Amino acid sequence: VTLFVALYDYEARTEDDLSFHKGSKFQILNSSEGDWWEARSLTTGETGYIPSNYVAPV
């Protein structure tokens, strides 16, 4: 499992996005959609889309 960590805070703009804070960790579920990845937050357990340029591999 590849884990990613948030580099910045992000406020969701749609109900499909995940809001998160810098330092939040994610499991990436689908990275084939270009700049928006489907991810599960390891902090909240919620699933949604995150901007790929806001995260980096742990």
Rank of each mutant, 00 (worst) to 15 (best):
V1N: 14
V1T: 14
V1H: 14
V1E: 14
V1Y: 14
V1S: 13
V1K: 13
V1G: 14
T2P: 14
T2Y: 11
T2S: 12
T2V: 13
T2Q: 13
L3K: 05
L3C: 12
L3H: 10
L3N: 06
L3E: 10
F4C: 09
F4Q: 04
F4D: 01
F4K: 02
F4I: 04
V5D: 03
V5N: 02
V5K: 04
V5S: 04
A6P: 01
A6V: 02
A6W: 01
L7M: 09
L7P: 00
L7C: 09
L7N: 03
L7D: 02
L7R: 02
Y8S: 06
Y8H: 08
D9T: 06
D9V: 02
D9G: 05
D9I: 03
D9F: 04
D9E: 06
D9P: 06
D9H: 06
Y10I: 01
Y10A: 01
Y10H: 05
E11F: 09
E11H: 10
E11P: 04
E11M: 10
R13D: 08
R13S: 11
R13T: 13
R13K: 13
T14M: 12
T14F: 15
T14I: 06
T14P: 03
T14H: 14
E15K: 13
E15A: 13
E15Y: 09
D16Q: 14
D16W: 15
D16I: 14
D16F: 15
D16R: 15
D16M: 14
D16Y: 15
D17F: 14
D17G: 15
D17L: 10
D17W: 10
D17P: 01
D17Y: 14
D17K: 15
L18C: 03
L18S: 01
S19W: 03
S19R: 04
S19A: 06
S19E: 04
S19H: 08
S19V: 02
F20H: 00
F20G: 00
F20K: 00
H21S: 14
H21Y: 11
H21D: 09
K22Y: 05
K22Q: 08
K22E: 07
K22W: 04
K22D: 02
G23D: 06
G23W: 04
G23F: 04
G23V: 01
G23L: 03
G23S: 03
G23N: 05
S24M: 14
S24Y: 13
S24K: 03
S24A: 14
S24F: 11
S24T: 15
S24C: 14
S24L: 05
K25Q: 12
K25T: 12
K25L: 15
K25R: 12
K25E: 09
K25M: 15
K25S: 07
K25C: 14
K25N: 06
F26M: 06
F26W: 06
F26E: 00
F26H: 01
F26I: 05
F26D: 01
Q27A: 09
Q27E: 15
Q27K: 08
Q27V: 15
Q27W: 14
Q27H: 11
I28H: 00
I28F: 03
L29W: 06
L29H: 05
L29D: 05
L29I: 11
N30R: 08
N30A: 08
N30F: 07
N30C: 10
S31A: 13
S31H: 10
S31N: 12
S31E: 09
S31C: 15
S32T: 12
S32G: 11
S32C: 13
S32P: 10
S32Q: 13
S32Y: 10
E33I: 11
E33K: 14
G34N: 12
G34R: 12
G34E: 12
G34H: 12
D35K: 09
D35Y: 15
D35Q: 11
D35F: 14
W36K: 11
W36H: 07
W36V: 07
W36I: 07
W36N: 05
W37C: 04
W37H: 03
W37R: 02
W37G: 00
W37Y: 09
W37S: 02
E38V: 15
E38M: 15
E38C: 15
E38N: 08
A39Y: 02
A39R: 00
A39F: 03
A39S: 02
A39E: 00
A39W: 01
R40Y: 14
R40S: 05
R40D: 02
R40K: 11
S41A: 09
S41H: 11
S41D: 14
L42R: 03
L42P: 04
L42I: 13
L42F: 06
L42W: 07
T43I: 10
T43Q: 11
T43Y: 08
T43A: 13
T43M: 10
T44Y: 03
T44M: 02
T44K: 03
T44H: 03
G45N: 08
G45D: 06
G45R: 04
G45F: 07
G45K: 05
G45S: 05
G45E: 05
G45M: 06
G45P: 01
G45C: 09
E46G: 05
E46S: 07
E46Q: 12
T47P: 02
T47N: 05
T47F: 07
T47E: 08
T47Q: 10
T47G: 03
T47I: 14
G48D: 00
G48V: 03
G48S: 01
Y49F: 13
Y49K: 13
I50M: 02
I50H: 01
I50W: 01
I50L: 07
P51Q: 05
P51Y: 06
P51E: 02
P51G: 03
P51N: 08
P51L: 07
S52G: 07
S52R: 12
S52Y: 07
S52C: 13
S52I: 06
N53P: 05
N53C: 15
N53D: 11
N53E: 10
N53Y: 10
N53M: 11
Y54G: 05
Y54L: 11
Y54H: 09
V55A: 03
V55I: 10
V55N: 00
V55T: 03
A56M: 10
A56T: 12
A56W: 09
A56D: 05
P57D: 05
P57Y: 06
P57L: 09
P57W: 05
P57E: 09
V58E: 10
V58M: 11
V58R: 03
V58D: 09
V58Q: 08
V58G: 05
